[in-house]
Write a protein that binds this DNA or RNA. Structure first.
Lengths: 222, 222
DNA sequence: GCCTAATATAAGGTATACCTAACTTATAGT
DNA sequence: ACTATAAGTTAGGTATACCTTATATTAGGC
């Protein structure tokens, strides 16, 4: 008995944002939402109440928000649309990761289920977006990607990139340029203390990554 | 010096609607707009004032509205997006004319110029939508389709369908089903008086079309 | 246990794009 | 020329999703 309401673009953006953050931690501070969505904390707070009233999120005051099962399902449906459009925009139209991300954010709110499903089929039912995030099923299910965050790896460890999680346009431009893409093999050379950079090798290439960037990269350790 | 503002979905719908009507006549009554957009005449009237203030339309009181050069350009850019999406949705995703129309109406407002241009290239720079309407250029230029409206043809005349103008979802379902598509050859058998039906032959097929339907069909007379 | 910084709420406001009801004005047909 | 009807306006209202300013509450570091 899949619900068929459709939500406003705003609501979808909130749900998507919470879902993307949840992938990292668990409870998402309302402040983080406001920052991501470029709105005031007051507005974010207001909306959180509305979402709670609709049973889409659970608000833990002074802690943050968490998606309910239904909220997660709706968020995943938005993510499905987003990631399928990203595939189309990069693979078929030849746009950069950054541009594809940006434009998928617009298209995702204007896409009927019928179109998404046809698009998925057209693309050969891909299982992940260009930067490796899994594409939820039509009914809003996904398994979280398996792997370890690059910031949690120790010097000497190696593996291959699974995905770039919860990215922003700027970050995508950077990682695409540096060839940090799903499947790329890497090895940790050093982890500098005091929140310092992480030095990695990609084949013969050497890179020094900041924690901010590394925090978005998920690796399958070998 | 192409203007870069982007308009709200509402404004785009008004411009598109006026443009589609203008193709038929010239001045579009505000009432007709309200009817098409399923809003009250008061709301349509209000919006017409706003569009006039922005220099997009000219309002001739008690007559109707007409697009300015700039308004026509903006409308054509929306039509370009609409018709390219229609091509994609029918040709690549396999949707019906009716569904493609419906979903193109959503996507057209969420599509950046960069995406439209890439989409056009991807589709092989098509010159018309699935039902034959010309696709405006990126800078908002189009030549109106050449041909005569089916209602203005006389018995005995024949030709081939150029396009289905200014359609609605229901109409599209009907004409697709009846195989009234661009290129289809037809001959007028009879035109019944008192706004009666028009009898046409498509090959060995015989069809009796109402004036409402015939009014949307443009034919290149041979 | 106290206090500050983070978080939340309250109050009032803006813009967009709709609505209904009531009223006015102009056009077109007789 | 008159009048019915179509077209337009005015006034007041709704919902969404933002905003700022000000105030209250709580959690965590000391």
């Amino acid at each position: 008995m899949v619900e068929r309401h459709h939500f406003s673009e705003s609501v979808e953006m909130y749900l998507k944002t919470i879902a993307e953050h949840s992938a990292v931690g668990e409870v998402v501070p309302v402040t983080a939402l406001a920052e991501d969505l470029l709105i005031s904390t007051v507005s974010a707070s207001e909306m959180v109440h509305k979402l709670e009233a609709q049973g889409l999120v659970q608000h833990l005051p002074y802690k943050g928000v968490r998606l309910t099962a239904e909220g997660a399902r709706r968020a995943n449906i938005v993510l499905r649309r987003h990631r399928l459009w990203e595939r189309f925009l990069t693979d078929q139209l030849g746009l950069s990761w950054e541009k594809a991300y940006e434009f998928a954010c617009e298209l995702e709110h204007a896409t009927d289920e019928v179109v998404v499903d046809a698009l998925s089929k057209f693309l050969g039912s891909p299982e992940s977006c260009p930067h490796g995030n899994p594409i939820p099923s039509a009914d809003g299910e996904v398994d979280p990607p398996e792997g370890v965050c690059l910031v949690d790896m120790a010097p000497g460890e190696s593996g291959s990139i699974v995905c770039i999680q919860n990215p922003s346009p700027g970050l995508l431009q950077y990682v695409e340029e540096k060839d940090l893409r799903p499947g790329t093999k890497l090895q940790i050379n050093a982890v500098e203390p005091f929140e310092g950079p992480i030095s990695v090798s990609l084949g013969s290439e050497r890179l020094s990554l900041g924690r901010k960037v590394a925090g978005h990269i998920i690796v399958a350790v070998e």
